[in-house]
Design a binder for these strands. Sequence first.
DNA 1: GCGTGGCACTCGACTGCCCCGAGTGCTAAT
DNA 2: ATTAGCACTCGGGGCAGTCGAGTGCCACGC
Lengths: 339, 339
Amino acid sequence: MSDDRRLGVLRAIVEDYVQTREPVGSRVLVERHNLGVSPATIRNDMAALEDAGYIAQPHTSAGRVPTDKGYRLFVDQLSTIKPLSSPERRAIQHFLEDAVDLDDVVDRSVRLLAQLTQQVAIVQYPSLRRSALRHLELVPLGDRRLLVVIITDTGRVEQRTLELDEALDEQVVPELRARLNATAAGRRLVDLTEPLARLEEAFAPADRALVHRVITVVEDTLGEATEERIVMAGASHLARSGTDFTGTIRPVLEALEEQVVLLRLLTEMADDSAGVAVRIGHENRHAGLAETSVVAAGYGADGNAVARLGAVGPTRMDYAGTIASVRAVARYLSRILAG
Amino acid sequence: MSDDRRLGVLRAIVEDYVQTREPVGSRVLVERHNLGVSPATIRNDMAALEDAGYIAQPHTSAGRVPTDKGYRLFVDQLSTIKPLSSPERRAIQHFLEDAVDLDDVVDRSVRLLAQLTQQVAIVQYPSLRRSALRHLELVPLGDRRLLVVIITDTGRVEQRTLELDEALDEQVVPELRARLNATAAGRRLVDLTEPLARLEEAFAPADRALVHRVITVVEDTLGEATEERIVMAGASHLARSGTDFTGTIRPVLEALEEQVVLLRLLTEMADDSAGVAVRIGHENRHAGLAETSVVAAGYGADGNAVARLGAVGPTRMDYAGTIASVRAVARYLSRILAG
DNA sequence: GCGTGGCACTCGACTGCCCCGAGTGCTAAT
DNA sequence: ATTAGCACTCGGGGCAGTCGAGTGCCACGC
């Protein structure tokens, strides 16, 4: 009994099951994949695969279904990444290029990915901490409020309003703006703390209170709590006709609405050599996602990832196609952000 | 046969059906609502209500279920709006007050509304066109790119990058910024076109190309196509155990993912005297939403609505509670934006 | 030792049948 | 106008029987 053939059988089972959504038996297997052997032989292989935990049967007189472990082996065997068709590629590029700002880019990306994969897509906004600062803008609003706008090189814009205790000295604002930008522009936000502290000391004591508040607000904005945003699209794909989940899709939807869960999901995953990570079923370590798989990749200008995106679907998904789409969108998105 | 009692019967049917999710018969009706008459009498009333199209029976030997028309009458009869409990009110206020910027406010609002109503919540961002301009900021990025930032009094920030054909004259930027703001600040964005056109003519011919591009970009940003954004939360509530929809929730989810559909939905609805609008079932004029009802209200600082929010759920929903929650969140949101 | 044909066995899916009960509509009585 | 009584309808649940897909195992041949 060759190990090679057994792998082939597993692969055939996964492919058939993904396509038909039904447990696959030994006969249809030999017919559809013209393996040159008889059903009985396949049955022996299947028994071995079942002993090893790669497949299971829902009930005695039914065919076999891949287990999480089976999908894992299947995915690891997937070596070649199926390239997208060239019309597909053009469509992606065209679609993303028309975006007017970062919100629009992210929004278009997530919809595009949902469309391509026919699954739920999630996209994390470029992390503030890992981005570089492009510009800091201070806008006085009346004489007791100051609007602080933080603009990163990934196009992300954050704004905070400061309520001041005393009337604002209009003179100090342009100076503060200029010196803040001189100090901070171009730096990664995570590296700002120390230079900003030094800057504060360089101001006249009378102005320090204001300077301190501005610096504090900038740093708070970078705090973990509020900085991460994730958008989602394609939830309707979860409700596709042939319902893939035992019971309802509610736990899945609930999990997907928890930013914290999604964030953990995305950040915990380690990309493989092709830059894509796959988590299957229970590997997600979350009850609501026990029957789903996640395919994710990082993106970001000039090679260093500033955030991640991915697709979430039933464990019985088209892994090859999903991986290809996720990878493609991540690449185009990186290119757009760099441009 | 008194018309009063018939209305009471309809009301009782709606209440019971909303609670039990099961067709309600004449006997349980008299028992649960201690109407002082016999089941037979109620049956006559029910027959009349059915002739009038307010209720229907799924099949011969079953109880009655309200029709869209029945719900409509029921909702129109709902005069008093059930006030929220005071802990609820405190929770709302507390929750919304902690928001740091507009994105955060909107995000918190939509989650809060989903939580309160136990349904899908949608919130439209404050309309750009109906907001007033707070500040226009121009930020040179290198010498061939100019970042234009538009900040409204509702806290919304839009940004666009201009790619310039020729090197930017650093001198003209402060002047342009000052004059743009002098012309535009405080005005409703929809009223800007004409003053801006006049402003353009006031510049030296050499600078007009730049001025023109900036003005164009501001006006384009206000164009219908990109200005409207809607966020959604609570999709998981659609998948609640007792599935309320014939077939799947897929068409509903699909409709909710179409910004255009949502937008039409929200803007087409006319608020009643209490500031809340309700659309029931087929009134939504959208196939996917034929079995859902929408409760919406406008919000905005100082009384004039700049956008809308709402809840979407099965026609068999708790209208009184949903209306109360939608109204409350709209009010608190208005207050936050005004403050 | 590996592959194969044959065969008995298992068990879910489907079907037809029956019965029960909830709920109705109608009629006649008050 | 309300009500009691009654015949009628029809969906749903329980039960038995059949069908067929698919398995596991065994004996045989190369």
